[in-house]
Design a protein around this nucleic acid. Structure first.
Length: 495
RNA sequence: GCAUCUUUAGCUCAGUCGGUUAGAGCGGCGGACUGUUAAUCCGUAGGUCCUAGGUUCAAGUCCUAGAAGAUGCGCCA
């Protein structure tokens, strides 16, 4: 296994060396201190020690003949220890170097009888129930190192391009965004709600003096920033109170939302495609060992699946394929034509048959386009106006397009579906207010948003990227609950 | 919210057509071995068969309801 060392300094007092650094750069003759958690203790003699810097363990050789047997009993799977000793060439196969222990200190014992993690394969469902301990498994430590690398690369990508990272509010009084059901934020006692004369809940007595919710998107606020700073992005938690029970929805998730002034739909697509490729490339270069581990894990898992359900490409091949091919850019209107003439539509295999322009695409249609027809990421653009949000820019009528469209774009990924949703924004005040009226969005409350169109408006565009969906794609995991530390889903807010 | 599937030891799972005392591997515990690689070998303990009803001479197995989990759909990122 190739081991990736992620940093140059082992951060710790008492000259502790991290295991990734020791395994890559350590040489016989060194005297070192390592600290970590025992993975296995074999033959009363060999400790496999892990500190989370890599999935590879350092082998610690214990001088069992000169160690108190009561102390040897404490070296159990999961125990936290310090080892000071000499780096030597390993006599056994399977590792280049090992440590001959001179001193072992147990920081925290781990009762093997009740510790749930064993040196064996556990199901992801079981590990989800012990999410507080699942970081200690190879799969999850790899997933979370990759997750970190992707988050870091996103900041780096935008920083390199002159973007300003802005922090948009988590609590919002605006419920006009229409992005989904919201979680109410209140300090009122639900058992003793104050009422006004009309018998309605009196929110003037609530903390903010009006109804407030957790944010479903930072986009509207990001647009305000873009109208001064030119290029901004947000990267924060987002909350949707939808009763969604799928492998790709969370009630609390992280979203990246760039917003760019003086940009149109094409700039927007270039930005999104560039970002996705940049961060995937970053992960391939900086998490090679973790991705290899996840790649092999996936191959192993797929062995138990029937041939036709296995993926055509391995995880790493799929990521590299994604880098070396341009995303397919087609309009909604073109997509409808393809779907209308597709075999599953003609043979009535789709649950929802495509009959006319204007229909919303179901996930079976998106999957057909991405996984069967194009076999690569697809960007769908210029959707019918009626199925998209009020703030998307209205297109000029075009020959061959049956109805009004907006400059929207969705990026669809294999296995994930929609990973990015974005648009060029409607910057023309009259068009925007007319649309809001049509969709019953209270323009009065949204004065702050509309002010950007009143005072120095300009063409601008942006998108939202679901961070966990990106992590799903890059790690090859199949359930979104396994790429966030403590998933919040309907009926579950454990830990 | 809807549909389908699953639930047996701490974990992963087997359990035939409804039939007598519910099994295995791993893990635990006791021991052996001492250059192992999820070590190996011997021994041993461990069960509300998800819950509540029902059918039957007899239910882990069949039926009904509920709970929890998984998958798919809808909503979306």
């Amino acid at each position: 296994m190739k081991i990736v060392k992620r940093h140059n300094i082992s951060i710790n007092m008492s000259s502790r060396i991290k295991i990734a650094e020791l395994l890559t750069a350590g040489s016989p003759g060194q005297k070192v201190t390592v600290k970590g958690w025992i993975r296995t203790f074999r033959n009363n003699q060999f400790i496999a020690l892990n500190d989370g810097s890599t999935n590879a363990n350092i082998q610690v050789v214990v001088d069992f003949e000169n160690t108190d047997p009561a102390e040897l009993k404490r070296y159990t799977t999961g125990a936290a220890i310090r080892v000071t000793g000499d780096v030597v060439e390993s006599q056994g196969k399977g590792q280049r170097i090992e440590i001959t222990a001179k001193e072992i200190e147990v920081y925290g014992d781990c009762d093997a009888e009740v510790y749930p993690l064993q040196p064996k394969k556990h199901s992801l469902e079981f590990l989800r129930e012990i999410a507080h301990l699942r970081f200690r498994t190879n799969t999850f430590s790899s997933v979370f190192r990759v997750r970190h690398a992707l988050a870091f690369a996103i900041h780096q990508y935008f920083n390199n391009r002159g973007f300003t990272y802005i922090h948009t509010p988590i609590i919002t009084a605006s419920d006009a965004e229409g992005a989904g059901e919201m979680f109410r934020v209140s300090t009122l006692d639900p058992d003793k709600l104050p009422r006004n004369e009309a018998g309605e809940v009196d929110y003037t007595q609530d903390f903010f003096g009006k109804p407030t919710n957790l944010t479903v998107s930072g986009q509207l606020e990001a647009e305000l920033g873009a109208m001064a700073l030119s290029e901004v992005y947000t990267f924060g938690p987002t909350f949707r109170a939808e009763n969604s029970n799928t492998t790709r929805h969370l009630a609390e998730f992280w979203m990246i939302e760039p917003e760019v002034a003086f940009a149109d739909l094409n700039d927007n697509m270039d930005l999104a495609e560039g970002m996705l490729k940049y961060v995937i490339d970053y992960a391939l270069k900086n998490c090679a060992d973790d991705l290899q581990f996840l790649n092999d894990r996936l191959l192993e898992e797929e062995k138990s699946k029937p041939q036709n359900e296995r993926s055509a490409m391995s995880l790493i091949d799929k990521l590299q394929f994604c880098l070396s091919n341009n995303f397919e850019r087609i309009t909604y209107t073109e997509a409808i034509e393809i779907l209308k003439n597709s075999n599953p539509n003609k043979r009535k295999q789709f649950k929802y048959l495509i009959e006319a322009w204007g229909a919303d695409l179901q996930s079976e249609h998106e999957r057909y386009l991405v996984e069967k027809h194009f076999q690569k990421p697809v960007i769908l653009t210029n959707y019918p106006a009626q199925i998209k949000a009020f703030y998307m820019r209205q297109d000029d009528p075009k020959e061959g397009v049956p109805g009004p469209t907006v400059s929207a774009m969705d990026i669809l990924f294999p296995g994930i579906g929609e990973i990015v949703g974005g648009s060029q924004r409607e910057e023309r005040l009259d068009r925007l207010t007319a649309k809001m009226e049509e969709m019953h969005i209270p323009a009065k409350e949204m004065y702050w948003y509309l002010d950007t169109r009143r005072f120095g408006t300009c063409p601008h565009a942006g998108f939202g990227l679901g961070f966990e969906r990106l992590v799903l794609f890059v790690t090859g995991m199949s359930n979104i609950r396994d790429v966030i530390a403590f998933p919040r889903t309907p009926g579950n807010a454990e830990f």
